[in-house]
Amino acid sequence: MYAFDYQRPDAIAAAAAILSADPEAKALAGGQTLLPTLKQRLAQPTALVDLSRIPELSGICATTEGVSIGAMTRHADVAASELVRAAIPALADLAGMIGDVAVRNRGTIGGSLANDDPTADYPAAVLALNATVVTDRRSIGASDFFRGLFETALKEGEIITRVDFPKVEKAGYAKFRNPASRYAMAGVFVAKTAAEVRVAVTGAGQSGVFLWTEAGDILSSDFSVQAVSGLALDPSNLMSDLHGSAEYRAQLAKVMLKRALASITG
């Protein structure tokens, strides 16, 4: 690691002040992505601003619309939360599928979303559930938040404070894990509201998480596993790498869609 200064503010405003005064300072959440990056000397921030001692950033609460999760809430706490399980069980399940136990005990939802890894799990839930990412300065709808590979709508120094998830009628998530990294080779989140069905795919797209609109349209009129049996995902915008070809990922995404549906419709 290159040298950095360490700061541990106890309020959002103080953290924001440090981050906006120094564009090369970086927020530190669970460190499960940032610390491996620093160890490889792939980044050289001047300062790390540890968000872990800012009480307003942690915790889960029920809202009239659904459930609100503080940015610094650890994956393990989301997985174990009765409030999350009562509102959106698939979201608690998803949190329990991230990485391994030790990663889940440190990693946070805010860190995962700010990082926007194209194979991360939370982006699929946020996009399918049409959640709102709240920062120290504004609210960002899911469709505007994700901008591509490791790219989000966050401006320099902007801090995610919480994520508001609306309750839905039904939701399900299925993931095919890369057995070495544990990230998604393909992960599909299905969310059904009275108005529509939204299907988000992570792990497969060349520019990160995306809405599979064709699947959502079909399922909006017929919410069943059978309805998607003739559907195929176009591989031309999917990733090809040493783990699998775009065609393989297209097929995996379809299988994950069916599994997610089966977990909901039984």
Binding site: G31, L35, S52, A102, V103
Partner: peptide, 20 residues
């Protein structure tokens, strides 16, 4: 892996100052 406040964490992916 060690226990930090009673839960398993990777001590190679935690700064000592985070355990203050």
């Amino acid at each position: 892996v060690v226990h930090l406040d009673g839960v398993a964490v990777k001590s190679c992916t935690t700064l000592a100052v985070q355990a203050d």
